[in-house]
Measured scan of single mutants.
Amino acid sequence: MQIFVKTLTGKTITLEVEPSDTIENVKAKIQDKEGIPPDQQRLIFNGKQLEDGRTLSDYNIQKDSTLHLVLR
């Protein structure tokens, strides 16, 4: 499925993911596309910070959902 990740600069990254993917996996995909190390990434969905060990389906993230990427 496709999800979107919006950065603070207003750029939107499109990712191909599975609901069973962990947040860690998603961060690795963002690193592949953008070169941002996962330990600098914080992903936010519906105002909640997403934890590495959880999956997209844990957070009820579905296709065409938009996550927000904050760098630390």
Rank of each mutant, 00 (worst) to 15 (best):
I44A: 12
I23S: 10
R72Y: 08
L71S: 13
T66R: 03
S20W: 05
Q40M: 04
T55V: 12
Q62G: 13
Q62W: 09
V5P: 00
D52T: 13
E34H: 04
A28Q: 07
K63F: 14
R42Q: 07
L71M: 08
K6W: 05
T12Y: 07
R42N: 06
T14G: 14
E16M: 15
V26N: 00
D21W: 02
D52W: 11
D52L: 09
S57P: 08
H68M: 03
Q40F: 11
R42M: 10
K29R: 08
D58P: 01
G53L: 13
E18V: 11
T22L: 13
N46Q: 14
D52S: 05
T7G: 14
L43E: 00
K6Y: 09
R54D: 15
L67E: 01
D52F: 05
I13D: 01
Y59H: 11
T22R: 09
E34W: 04
V5G: 01
Q2E: 11
F4N: 14
K11G: 07
G10H: 07
L56S: 01
L71E: 08
S65M: 09
L50W: 01
K29Y: 08
K33E: 15
L56Q: 00
V26I: 13
Q2R: 13
E16W: 13
Q41G: 06
R72N: 05
L71A: 10
D58S: 02
I13H: 08
T66V: 04
T7I: 03
T22I: 07
G47V: 06
K33R: 06
T22S: 03
T66E: 03
I3K: 00
F45Y: 15
E16A: 08
I13E: 04
G10I: 03
T22E: 14
P19Y: 04
D64A: 13
V26W: 01
P38R: 09
T7S: 06
V17T: 14
G47P: 01
F45E: 03
E16Y: 09
D39F: 12
E16H: 15
D64S: 08
T66A: 04
N25F: 02
D21M: 08
R54S: 08
L69G: 01
N25E: 11
K48F: 12
I13S: 06
N25Q: 03
D21G: 07
L69D: 01
D58L: 06
I36A: 05
Q49Y: 13
L43T: 00
K63W: 13
Q40Y: 09
L8H: 12
R72G: 09
Q49K: 05
V17H: 08
L50F: 03
M1T: 02
T55I: 04
F45H: 10
G53H: 05
I13R: 04
Q49P: 12
D39M: 15
K63Y: 04
T9A: 11
K33V: 11
A28T: 12
Q40T: 04
P37V: 14
L56G: 01
L71G: 14
L67F: 03
R42I: 15
P38A: 10
Q40W: 05
R54E: 08
I44S: 12
H68W: 02
I3E: 00
S65N: 04
V5S: 01
G47Y: 04
T12I: 10
F4Q: 07
D39N: 07
I61E: 00
E16P: 11
D39W: 03
V5I: 09
I3S: 00
E51G: 04
E24W: 02
V70P: 01
K33G: 08
Q62V: 12
R72D: 13
D58W: 09
P19M: 13
V26E: 00
L8K: 10
T7A: 15
L67A: 01
I30N: 01
T12A: 12
I44P: 00
D21N: 14
Q31F: 06
Q31R: 08
T9V: 15
K63L: 12
F4W: 14
P37N: 15
S65H: 10
L67P: 01
S20G: 04
M1V: 12
R42D: 12
T66P: 02
L56E: 00
I13P: 00
G47L: 15
L56T: 07
L43N: 00
V70N: 08
F4D: 14
Q40G: 09
L71D: 11
Q41I: 07
S20T: 11
D21T: 05
E34M: 12
T55W: 10
D64H: 10
E16L: 11
D32G: 11
S57Q: 06
Y59R: 01
P19H: 13
G53T: 10
E24Q: 08
I3T: 01
L43G: 00
D58G: 07
S57F: 07
Q62S: 09
V26A: 07
Q40K: 11
G47S: 11
V70G: 05
F4K: 10
R54F: 14
E34L: 06
Q2P: 15
K63Q: 12
I44M: 13
K27G: 01
Q2T: 12
